[in-house]
Amino acid sequence: MMEWLNIILQGVLVGGLYAMFAAGLSLIFGVMRLVNIAHGDLIVLAAYVALVVTTGLGINPLVSLLVVVPLMALIGYALQRGILNQTLGPDLLPPLLVTFGLSVIIQNGLLELFTADSRKLQAGAIEVSSINLGGGLAIGTLPLIQFIVAIAVIAALQLIFYRTALGRAFRATSDEPAVAQLVGLDNRHVFALAMALSLAVVAIAGVFLAVRANFDPAIGPARLIFGFEAVIMGGLGSMWGTLAGGIILGVAQAIGAQIDPGWQLLAGHIAFLIVLAIRPEGLFPKVQG
């Protein structure tokens, strides 16, 4: 019994990471109806940026966030202004194709620069420390930090979206792009700010991913799938729903892995299909006013 409780607990903590994968994806889709196929690869790119920063400056990966987050946000702004804005329009296909191409470019670029070797960020003693909850239950310090950060990220996004002028601009531009221009909002700038925010979240997710496990240039697409599944399960447009979706995915994978290590990914996908079959609109769909 305790063993299962432990597994579920670990699954919940991993779910926080999946929620961070998903949050940036959900944000971009919500603001500009852009499905970013390169999202997973951008997470991996952030991990490599963190690798360069940590080895170059000799700092802890968690400290490197101070550099990686603004850097990725800057990349996000430039990417949107330089490329993605040109693909937006009534047709959903061009942004899909362009971000797919971007995904291929990032993967191959990283392969050229860093080879296909697995890498990992070293966070030191914190990686193996844990907090004993008694009764045989223990949670790792790092997964706990990761989960708390995930909740903070979701709460911050929620706050930005519904309580700030920037969030108002995001929602207004998403609602009525043409009218948003009539109140003085430059859509291209607003979209670029949304992408910058998305990649700031991607940077956090990438660093935690890289501390938690090995990474190589090819693992992006699988992270994209996890992100998609968490977004869809949670319900499009709901940030807290995204967290719930991530947790369901994390727990399902943990339970699957316990039954048979080969079932880890399958169990996650099955949980996704079950949710989709029962509630196609997701668990917490955005309530339309």
Binding site: R168, A169, V179, V183, G184, Q288
Partner: peptide, 22 residues
């Protein structure tokens, strides 16, 4: 604009505030 074209996901006050955001 013709047909009013308010921002549907914004409240009345938010619609006004976004109008004054410059």
């Amino acid at each position: 604009p013709e047909g009013r074209r308010l921002f549907p996901s914004l409240s009345v006050e938010e619609n006004l505030l976004v109008g004054g955001q410059l």
